[in-house]
Amino acid sequence: MSEAALQVRGLSCSINGVAILRNISFSVAAGSYVSIVGPNGAGKTTLLKCLNRILNGTADEVQIEGKALADYAQAELAKVMGYVPQGGTDQVPFLAYEFVMMGRYPHLSPFTSPTATDHAAVLQALETAGAADLAGRQCATLSGGERQKILVAAALAQEAGIFLLDEPTTFLDPHHQDDVLRLLTRLNKDCGATIVSVTHDINAAVLSSDDVIALRDGQVVFQGPPEALTSGTVLADLFDQEFHFVEHPVNGKRLIVPLAVR
């Protein structure tokens, strides 16, 4: 837990002249599970995209596994960091298996076909993601929960040590939410993966993370253990709203409950 998987200092990013991220600094310990929370428009997705170089921000320092982000070739970066975007494989004209194989891209060379190693990695990824039975399906025919598993499997096939996930549970029913959260926890605990997950689900963040980062208006307003997030006025300040809290019946963690609106 000592070495930092991600070390970010003074990261800013503008899109079409609008400042989305403003001077953000934080670090993520290797092997930890970090949730990023915050109101809509706070810059959570933009932050993930900057770490991935989908967007280009400016920063004093961004280090991924101890090496400056700028020094990575894109394919090299994909070997240390996988990304699970928000939804959207509905337009993909490939079998689930083929889609997951695309996660092997950084390991493939231009003129060669996937090797036995690649096929083994894809099967392993599908297995781990609990999606082995989906391999032969067309991506376009998958349900939301199945799609999410395939997206995770594709990132797994990259064999990266860091996972960036953008709202992996947002459109899922409770059962599939649990599936995905359990999968991420298992990756974190059993495989030693570093998980950085953007989520709107405060309770999931509290229950699954080692550490929570809260963004608001493109700035880090909180980083600390989940217990600190749900004590004091952190959440109220973050969302401009009062919350009710209850104790989790099993582990005693403080969770939020919805307001009684009528």
Binding site: K49, N52, I54, Q74, P85, V92, F94
Partner: peptide, 16 residues
Amino acid sequence: NLMTVGEELAISRGVD
């Protein structure tokens, strides 16, 4: 193949 799936996903998989 990856660009068919989406530019952002392609970048995250390591495509320049």
